[in-house]
Design a protein around this nucleic acid. Structure first.
Ligand SMILES: [Zn+2]
Ligand SMILES: [Zn+2]
Ligand SMILES: [Zn+2]
Ligand SMILES: [Zn+2]
Lengths: 134, 134
DNA sequence: ATAACAAACGTTATATTATAACAAATTAAG
DNA sequence: CTTAATTTGTTATAATATAACGTTTGTTAT
């Protein structure tokens, strides 16, 4: 009986803690730099941890930025349905938690006969702060 | 009066023609390999063409694959609102043309006060073919 | 036509992001 | 304890993307 892992390994915990403390999405090599004092020396160690953390639903990858952010949406299925708002100016990223949206997209079906189990949506615009300043 | 460019340069035309003839999304270095006989020798020449073609709405980038596909949706705003279906098995990618979906997403607003001008949505699942085979 | 400007080009070098391959150490299960 | 699975450490390399520079081509306005 292979259950979804819930115990995080040492490296996974280290990488997760860095991502959780960050204000915004972190890039892999920035994570690497941050964890070198804790014994993680090579890119692969970071990428391996990132892979497992994504599988576990603890973090998400922001595809348009090649960066990683902690999941703030404890309800969301394990990394299967994700939506983010991204500010084009200050690069602020926030995970969107909206039941209507997630229901709409989870139930979406077009004429292709394809049933989608997973999606990633990235919205771009100006955040409230940046809208004011401009 | 700076209008949106509609005349494509030589390199842009070459790169676009490769992408349009392809069955699926192409990677930048695969494009490079394909156009070397036509005089394009360096990655930067390809990336520059790709950038302009995206701005012109002729192609889109599939972010989860770092690959580029021709736009099949002449109605869509210039690369501003994109949705794709991606088969996890055969990697078949198709641009989704669905007015309800695009209206829903273009009008989407959450409580953040952010108004989104642009989005990219990638759906994942099994296409009809691959569903049968499994 | 020609000067002035903007866009595209060619080229070299380099930055950034990500994975392959292999052996050792640790952890979970029977 | 024994065995299998996972995680780790390490080196090397693959894949993706941009910086910097000078030249060439195309457009616009006199
Ligand atoms: Zn989440
Ligand atoms: Zn902002
Ligand atoms: Zn399109
Ligand atoms: Zn398929």
């Amino acid at each position: 009986m292979t259950q979804k892992q819930e115990h995080l390994s040492k490296n996974q915990q280290i990488v997760l803690s860095i991502i959780e403390r960050a204000k915004g999405p972190l890039k892999a090599y920035s994570i690497l730099y941050n964890v070198q004092k804790r014994g993680i020396k090579a890119p692969l160690q970071v990428y391996r941890a990132l892979e497992k953390l994504i599988e576990a639903g603890k973090i998400h990858k922001i595809e348009s930025k090649n960066a990683f952010i902690a999941c703030k949406n404890s309800d969301c299925e394990i990394s299967k349905t994700t939506a983010f708002s991204i500010c084009n100016n200050c690069e602020h990223v926030k995970e969107i938690k909206n039941l209507k949206l997630s229901k709409y997209l989870s139930n979406f079906a077009d004429n292709s006969g394809m049933k989608y189990k997973k999606y990633n949506l990235e919205f771009f615009g100006l955040c409230k702060n940046c809208k004011i300043k401009q």
